[in-house]
Structure formats: structure tokens, C-alpha cells
Amino acid sequence: MNESPHGSSTITRLVESFHRLPGIGPKSAQRLAYHVLRAPEEEARALAEALLDVKQRAVLCGACQQISDTDPCAVCDDTRRDRTVICVVEEPLDLVAIERTNGYHGLYHVLHGAISPADGVGPEDLKISELLTRLRRDDGDDAEAVGEVIVATNPNLEGEATAMYLARLLEPLGVRVTRLARGLPAGADLEYVDNVTLERALAFRQSVE
């Protein structure tokens, strides 16, 4: 009996490795493995080096907890950023999304998740104590002290629970806690919008300029 369905244990190993990645099924794993097999050696080497690099060089920024090559990360190290505002996001990719807007110039804090009791994720599993430590350290009379924390967790049940829990912890520190506005997404169809979103969109309506 042939134990390697691909006739080669190295290909089978590569297929299995791709298959372990999220969102990659057995067929996609095979296609990726055969793509690597047929690709020039430099391309395969670059992929392997990128995989190793991300494991060996990526670190968490000691301040904002973002994944970075350096500690502190480029954002925390940038003296042009507004150090009086911290935007709290759930995941590293949320930070990337906000940076892409070019509309925010303050600092960040990445929680690495949201409170989700049903999935066993509680406040102690998130980078909340790191945020509190950071705010207490910054607490002082100097102009650089953090005056506002923008809670940019997702507008869903877990995100709301996290936002309210954070607000409860942060308000005694004398920090202004704000939340991203909620409303209709661009291109939405009112007919299909859920009641909560529509209610918030009406509550936070703005003058037409």
C-alpha cells in the first residue's frame, strides 16, 4: 500500500502543512503544494524565509501590543503621533484598517480579542491589564498624558461587552472614553438594515453640510 498518495513524502508533507492553514481545504492545499513545486526555486526559498522570519523576528510591541519587527513598534516610536489619544482595537488587522484611512494620528492598543464568555474568552485573556498599566504610567500633569481612549472594538455583542467593560475600568482613571460612531455602512440598503443599526443611525444623525 502506498502511504504517500502523491508518490512523494515531501509533497504529502507540504500538502498537509498547507491544509493546516485556516480556510485551506484539501484541494486548495494540493494546488498550492504543486504550485510551489513548479515555481522557481527562488520563489520557494523566499516563501520559506518569509515564514521563518515572521516566527523569528515578529515581536509584540511592549506598549501597544501590536505585532511588529521592533519594540517599540514604528507607530509608538513615531514622535509625530499624538500621544494624548489611544485607539483600542480588538485585533492587529483592525489597527491596519484604521491606519489605512490616514485619518487617525494617535497611538493604538491591541487587545488581541474581545470578551466572549461563550467561547471562554474573559477579560483576563485580553491585553487589558497592559492598557491600564500604560495609562497609569502616563498619568501625570505633562502635556503628553493620555486624555482620551477611543474604544474601536467591533459593533457586535462581544465588542460592546468589551467596550463597556473597558469604560468601567478606565473612567476612574480620569480618562475620557469614547466609542466609534455606529450607523449605516456605505452602499447600504435601508430596507435590509437591522433595527439596532437604524436606531443608532437616527440617534446620531448629522446636519447635511
Binding site: 470578551i115 466572549s116 464568555p117 474568552v121 474573559g122 477579560p123 461587552a161 467593560y165 468601567r168 475600568l169
Partner: peptide, 12 residues
């Protein structure tokens, strides 16, 4: 997990 969260909320 939600029972633990209830307790955590009460402490805050």
C-alpha cells in the same frame, strides 16, 4: 465562561 464574566463585571 459567562458566570466568570458576571463576577468580573460585579467587581468593576
Amino acid at each position: 465562561g459567562s458566570a466568570r464574566f458576571l463576577a468580573a463585571v460585579r467587581h468593576t
